[in-house]
Write a protein that binds this DNA or RNA. Structure first.
Lengths: 341, 341
DNA sequence: TACATTTATGTAATCGATAACATTTTATAT
DNA sequence: ATATAAAATGTTATCGATTACATAAATGTA
């Protein structure tokens, strides 16, 4: 009554064995055309549907993959997940989502929880830089379950990654500001234990140096990726004896906070101060004063992460080779930094 | 070597049977303290971890639930998913995400695919109004698998839903415009075969009528939830013989398009024309000209949807009772409609 | 016709955990 | 010390599908 037709039901109905039914359903060559046809028809009639759970237990492949992100309700991560899902669904995979909220214990808990659920792979963006506990990762590797980092990675032997060239993104952004004539460029940084922020900092610094500007460490301030934090930090910058005339922010949200503070002080953007954010969040384009930002093509990143996973799976037991895909970011020049003409 | 310790391994190690191991691990009372301790220690030593797949096959509960949305990379749906995940993860559930991209075949495909994966329930926002094919839904119900609609629902007997009071949201928004002195209010609608848009239209209409304004059907135009569509439609409105002096849009994106068109014509907001959107997308608050919008508290909606699911699961075989939660929307009044003082 | 092949089907084990039922061991009462 | 109850453990079937191996049926060959 409650659905759930199994191959045994079909077998009984036709007075054959479950093995034969299984073979018929799987296009196994060792079966007569007549029987196959009969089984297929009966299966359809009885609304048979394969129980993937049983298959998974038998085969050791669940066709589920886990995706771990700090949070899902940010355009960046949501877009990555979109890309992953679109790439994997056609191949028969389902995507399980876990959020860590930047909590280390949840990060580890999620990994274990996904392992218990027998996922075929884990794609994740690590949230905690201090996550010294490589144990959970090692466990994955020992079990030969593909682990792939996207965006926020950790250097672990045998683990592939898909990231963007944060250094280049930052370098290009800073260079653009310099080209626009800005001389004293500040940088709203973030926890530099995380590679992405470290590299953005380094790219910024290199651009300053390469172009003969004075590099002033006091113009670099670490803050959190929140609007009000950006505002607070900008207050500090503007109150300096020699305030900056441009700000390259490692986050669109802090860039927005900076804009708010700058406007409150009656300063003009981009005439008096230039602003660039990072991530190309949708709102940067929507603002009347549109914000120049670095696009990370997150959907593409998700797609490629999924592809790298598929490659590893298809590679099977072969040599576990790391693959590191580095995508090129694109500077989206908008009003907040375009001073010419 | 490759991990995967099973209860049989532990049993062999201790010269007992798997059943005893299972009992020890599950705190079954029928076991001696000594054996339990021994098993627990050995399990820890051998890095045992329960295979949820085997458990799922045996128990018929996968502890996976499917969530089907049109797309995940919109703040609204991402926030709902966030709420769902946060509510269900602590209860041991994993959330599987599927996107339909508003395609009917994908919608049906997703349901079947999730069914095969033996999910314990499906939470979804239907994307296609024309989805006459109730077959897939009936299949779910027949199998006694909880199906719960959120936001975009369909009236199906036995199916619970969590929605917001779109009528009220629209009514309040329109009433607010009227209170601000706007006299000729247009409505950017959307496919009214979908209940949410139908109800927003009805709420708008009722507010117009209740407040003695003239209801003019030509001021209601269906469009798609895209910025450029909103712009295009607004063009039509502004070119009318008697153009509107306010626009209540069923989407924040069309509201944004409307603003762009209005500004290009040199009209002032909110002085000449008032604007209200729907959904309270993050950017509405970030804009310099912040947009008044109707908040749908999506994270809360997700949470409650999950709770309704849990209730149905715990209800077990009991009377299948529909539950319809209707959340109250909140009007977020911002600059785009605040004309007084 | 008799024997070798090929083809189709059946049998039974397996994946890992659980649980009803059976059996053994230990504790308690007489 | 013996009967009996209670506690602990073992045996085995089960969830649903797959598959190596065994067997039966069909076909081919001499």
């Amino acid at each position: 009554m409650s659905g759930k037709t199994t191959i045994y039901d079909i077998a009984k109905e036709l007075n054959i064995t479950a093995a034969t039914v299984s073979r018929a359903l799987n296009n196994n060559p060792k079966i007569s055309k007549a029987t196959r046809k009969l089984v297929l028809e009966t299966a359809a009639k009885m609304n048979y549907e394969q129980n993937k759970l049983a298959l998974a237990l038998k085969s050791g492949k669940s066709y589920n993959i886990g995706v771990i992100v700090p949070r899902i309700d940010s355009n960046f991560f949501a877009s990555i997940i979109r890309g992953i899902e679109e790439e994997l669904y056609p191949k028969g995979y389902h995507v399980i989502i876990c959020q860590t909220h930047d909590q280390e214990d949840l990060e580890i808990g999620n990994i274990n929880s996904l392992l218990n659920a027998q996922v075929d792979g884990i794609l994740m963006s690590i949230s905690n830089a201090k996550l010294e506990d490589n144990q959970s990762f090692q466990k994955l590797l020992k079990k030969n379950i593909p682990l792939i980092f996207f965006d926020r990675k950790k250097d672990i032997k045998g683990v592939s990654s898909v990231t963007i060239d944060d250094f280049k993104g930052a370098y290009d952004a800073t260079k653009h500001l310099i080209d626009q004539g800005y001389k004293r460029i500040a940088h709203l940084s973030n926890d530099r234990l995380l590679l992405i922020f470290k590299n953005r900092y380094l790219g910024y610094k290199q651009a300053i140096i390469d172009n003969g500007l004075e590099f002033d460490e006091s113009l670099v301030i670490e803050t959190q990726s929140k609007v009000h934090e950006g505002k607070k930090t900008t207050k500090i910058l503007l109150d300096m004896e020699r305030p900056p005339d441009a700000i390259f922010s490692s986050s669109d949200f802090t860039a927005l906070g900076a804009i708010q503070e700058i406007k409150e002080r009656g300063l003009r953007i981009p005439e008096d101060i230039g602003i660039i954010g990072f991530s190309n969040e949708p709102f940067t384009k929507f603002m009347e004063l549109s914000i120049t930002s670095v696009d990370q093509s997150p959907t593409e990143m998700g797609r490629i992460t999924a592809q790298v996973f598929l490659e590893e799976v298809n590679n099977g037991k072969k040599i576990k080779s790391e693959k590191h895909v580095v995508l090129s970011p694109e500077l989206m020049v908008r009003k907040s930094s375009r001073r010419e003409n």
